[in-house]
Simulated assay, not measured.
Amino acid sequence: MFTGIIEEKGRLQAIKQDNQSLQLVMQASKVTTDLKVGDSISVNGVCLTVTDFTATSFQVDVIPETFRGSSLAQLSRQSSVNLERAMAANGRFGGHFVSGHVDATGKITRVWQEDNAKYYQIAVPDSRYISNKGSVAVDGTSLTVFGVTDHHFTISLIPETQQATVLGEKKIGDTVNVEFDMLAKYMERLLQQPAEGLTEDKLEQYGF
């Protein structure tokens, strides 16, 4: 589980690609300080497992499902990436619940500046899980939605986010990893379940 608060921008040091899988070595400094093999790290919003590490780098594997469902296959050597370690139980919770399981890739269709804010319009196949003023994770960054249509949503970056994440470097046509708010997904799933056995007495029993 992650918060969507990016800890540092890393750099892709080495990449080995098979048909539909990857082995990546990321250069980093902050996220490697207490690293162990088997730890989870979010790389551009994708939860990956550390298989090897040094004081200044770590290695992860990307399986075919992740290869096909995220933008990681578009990375090249020296690409910048957003990095976040799994959430610690004793830390502050500053973003929103982010699982690191990408729901869709989106394409940036518009970028504009307004005072100190940088706005991005992102096209997605379906925006039913996105709500205005709700939360969304873009390349692992927890952000607030400022506009939504059937197939687009708009986010805004404060100067700090522009500097501290790879989103500040993105341009029109770039692909990003999108994770919808998991609460919205769970709610839809619950509403799809049959209401058999749901009575006024049972609702009253559970405090409704």
Rank of each mutant, 00 (worst) to 15 (best):
G4C: 02
G4E: 03
I5Q: 00
I6Q: 01
E7H: 01
G10I: 03
R11K: 08
A14I: 00
K16D: 12
Q17T: 12
Q17H: 04
L22V: 09
Q23D: 04
Q23V: 00
L24H: 06
Q27T: 04
V31R: 01
D34W: 00
V37M: 04
V37F: 02
G38C: 08
D39L: 02
S40G: 06
V43H: 07
N44H: 07
N44P: 07
G45T: 07
G45M: 08
V46K: 02
C47K: 05
T49D: 02
F53R: 03
A55V: 07
V62K: 12
R68D: 14
A73G: 12
L75Y: 04
L75P: 02
L75V: 06
S76D: 09
R77A: 11
S79R: 07
V81R: 02
V81T: 03
N82R: 08
A88P: 02
G91S: 11
G91K: 01
R92C: 03
F97V: 14
S99M: 08
G100T: 06
G100W: 04
H101R: 10
G106F: 03
G106C: 05
K107S: 03
T109S: 14
T109C: 08
T109W: 11
R110L: 05
W112P: 07
W112C: 03
Q113A: 08
E114Y: 07
Y119C: 02
Y120G: 01
Q121C: 04
V124I: 11
P125R: 10
P125V: 01
R128I: 09
Y129I: 04
I130H: 09
K133E: 07
S135Q: 13
V136H: 06
V138Y: 02
D139G: 01
D139K: 01
S142I: 03
L143M: 10
T144F: 01
T144E: 10
F146S: 10
V148W: 12
T149G: 09
D150F: 00
T154E: 15
I155F: 14
T161E: 07
T161R: 09
Q163I: 15
A164R: 15
T165Q: 12
K170G: 06
G173V: 03
V176N: 12
N177R: 13
V178P: 11
E179P: 14
A184T: 15
K185N: 15
Y186F: 15
M187Q: 14
M187N: 15
E188A: 13
E188S: 13
E188Q: 14
R189H: 09
L190D: 04
L190Q: 06
L190T: 10
L190N: 05
Q192P: 08
A195R: 11
G197T: 11
G197W: 09
L198H: 08
E200T: 13
D201H: 12
K202P: 12
Q205H: 09
Q205G: 13
